[in-house]
Structure formats: C-alpha cells, structure tokens
Amino acid sequence: MFSYFANPERFQNLAKWLVPPLGVLGLLGIAIGFGGGLFFTPVDYQQGEAVRMMYVHVPAAWLASFAYAFMAMASLISFVWRHNLADAAAKAAAPLGASFTFLALLTGALWGKPMWGAYWVWDARLTSMLVMLFLYLGYMAVRNIVPDEARAARLAAITAMVGAINLPIIKFSVDWWSSLHQPSSVFRAGGSAIDSTMLWPLLIGALGYTAFFGWLVLVQMQTELDRRKIARLQRRMAGGRVSRPEAAQRSLGDD
C-alpha cells in the first residue's frame, strides 16, 4: 500500500479528492464544537462556566498526541522504505503538532488558573505535554538546521522515532514523579463520567481538529511536491538538459 501511493501522480489525484471535504469537515467540526461548547452545553455543577474551556483544551491535547503518533509512523515509513511522500507527511505534521501542543498547554493554563488557582502546576499531563513540545521542537530544529534536504529527512525521521520510543517512558516517569508530590485532592478534568450533553461538542470538536490536521497535512504535501517540481524545472532550465526517461525516473522518487 505504501508503494502504491509512492507515485506522486496517484497521490495528487487522491489528494485532489480528499482536500476539499476534509477542509469543510475540519472547519465545520471546529465551528460546531466551539459553538456547542460555548453556548449549548450545560454549566458544570462543580466548575461552573469554566468547564467551557474543556471544549478547546481536550481536542487540542488529543490532536497534539495524535499528530506525534502520525509523525512517528510517517517517519518510520520514510526511513525504512525511503518513501518520499511519507517524509513530506511527517514534515508537514510537525508544525501542526507543535502548534496544537502549544494550544493545549496554553488553554490548560487558562483553565488551570480558575480551577487550580495557578496557571501552571506540575501536573503529570501538563508536564508530559511540555516534554512533547520539546520533542516537536527538536524535530523541527533538525529539519531547519541541516541544510541537505535528503540528510535532514533521514535524521529527522530517526529523531521522531526515538521520541516515539521514549514518549511512553516519559509519560510513565512523569506520572511516577507527580504521584509523589501531588496532593490527591487536585481536581481531575472531566473525571470518568461525562454527561452526553457535554460529550457531543467534545467529540465533534475532536473530529473537526483531526480533519483539519489531515487537511493541512495534505495541502502541505501538495506544496512540497510542487516545490520539488519547481526545483526540477529550475535545474533543467539552468542548463543541464535532462533526458526524458531520466526525468520520469526522478519524478518517481529518489530526489
């Protein structure tokens, strides 16, 4: 299946079909989730109106983790099978994932202030989210600092995979660490049972965020393919004429 979509032509055709509905689904889902969270959900008996911040915080936190898993998978495929498009997908996922990690942290802080009395507490979830932000930043730093595109792609793929191996360990260690410190009375967001009147905007919002992510990843992959075409054309026009079969070969991969 991976090799099937390694062909940029096939990918372009698929992306052309997928991009518009994903965009609509994403924006609509986010709008409904936000509107529902703001106006059409009941007030929590414990948190009051502050519970409305759950509807922007939880989908961001979900997407932050999902985007990392996506990036790590794409990196694995790109590293093992030298799959250019998978690399483009991982590259596209990183800034989105980092942005949503940042959003999760920021909305978490804003939610924490009225609930915990502090913008920042060293809560296990917040802390592992912060570590994940650094993992994203490391990945993006590799891509930015290493000038040779092919080399940067492979080093970044290793970075993403190492991070993915370590994420569960980091999560575990941070849980371990915070269970030593934390007073057990700290309020736990949501708890185990969320009423269905509060659940639907959460689910639609998370779905919207995910579709939005998929949409922008695909768009960035299209941009990446266009950029490669541009580079190829520029190289060809700069002088060295490339024979047809060689050009066809190139468009299939390895450059």
């Binding site: 650094f134 490391g138 730093a141 991070g163 370590n166 260690s173």
Partner: peptide, 13 residues
C-alpha cells in the same frame, strides 16, 4: 533539544 527530553525519565528516577 534532541537529548534534553530523553533525560527527563532517568533524572526523575
């Protein structure tokens, strides 16, 4: 940036 996050677990332990 690359090794920093990986150092968190052993430091915690």
């Amino acid at each position: 940036l690359l090794s920093g996050p990986l150092l968190a677990p052993p430091l915690i332990f």
